[in-house]
Design a protein around this nucleic acid. Structure first.
Lengths: 157, 157
DNA sequence: GCGGAATATCTGACTGCGCAGATACTTTCT
DNA sequence: AGAAAGTATCTGCGCAGTCAGATATTCCGC
């Protein structure tokens, strides 16, 4: 086995461990948001996506494309968010098949609140335990890796 | 803002992006196993855990402690795996409350097959696109990160 | 402009998980 | 030994997601 092949094997194994840990963290962070803000992890993701669009609104189809959620799932998630007063459905003036989803005032406020809570959680549990002098290198590592991971996504679907 | 604080903020953001990408990859890799091997992602995880124990067997409680699954969930997952012939429940001679779960021959074979498929997927889609001369550094980065991520898990629960 | 393909949303049927209570057994304390 | 607390598994219920099909509208080629 060449040194390059060995490095490849190491990489596969290390990758697996990172995926496991990342998944677990994502799960726990989702639970934390749920407890501290009263909305599910997926609702938080959708709030962020909608916040990015401002009050232009966004079709459910577009939301489903950004998420790991089918269009049917988005319909029902938006149903629940609407019942909570976080979003509102409006008619799409340009396409009467579709409906545009927009944040309400309460939804925008909740997005801000949840983001604050989420960042605080990440900072407390993940960033602060890392020694200050290592943080810069860590940030670089993270950027490199998430770039590679993102490139791998389209190849896998 | 000091340079260290800036590095901390970078870290929080980069971490979020990595989590998102990792989660997505885990999901896609799970779907790939499902399609190519006919078992769910969680079944694969359980097969790996049981393979580690050999034919000593393992209680469902112990399985639930290793997974993001409650004991009720494990009961039902094992139900399905038993129906597929991948595992068998035996009486625990030392504790008549519990039952030991063991791989069948078919289960062990499926564990090997699924692992081969999984590693092949990771290699093809994630490792191979990385230039050979960078793989060693990548493997180190991954190890560092998954170590930190694993340390963060207990703090979050 | 008209007919068929494509697209957006909604809905019913199904699946899988968590929660909490039920049951059976074990451990611990007196 | 016997009672009480603890532990392992199972199960009924509810929720949230997928899938496939229904409906309404738009787009495209002729």
């Amino acid at each position: 086995m060449t040194a390059e092949e060995a490095a490849g094997n190491d990489l596969v194994l290390a990758f697996g461990r990172l995926l496991g840990a990342a998944n677990r963290l994502e799960y726990l962070l989702g639970r934390a948001i749920e407890e501290q803000c009263g909305i599910s992890h997926l609702m938080y993701e959708v709030l962020l996506i909608l916040a990015r669009e401002g009050n232009r609104g966004m079709s459910m189809r577009a939301i489903s494309r950004e998420q790991v959620l089918t269009t049917g799932g988005v319909t029902r998630l938006i149903d629940r968010m609407e019942a909570l007063g976080l979003v509102e459905r409006t008619l799409d003036p340009g396409d009467r098949r579709g409906r545009l989803v927009r944040l309400t005032g309460a939804g925008a406020a909740k997005a801000v609140e949840a983001t604050r809570v989420h960042l605080e959680n990440v900072r407390r549990h993940f960033v602060e335990p890392i020694p200050v002098e290592h943080r810069k290198r860590f940030a670089e590592d993270l950027r490199t890796l998430s770039h590679s991971a993102r490139e791998a996504i389209p190849r896998l679907r």
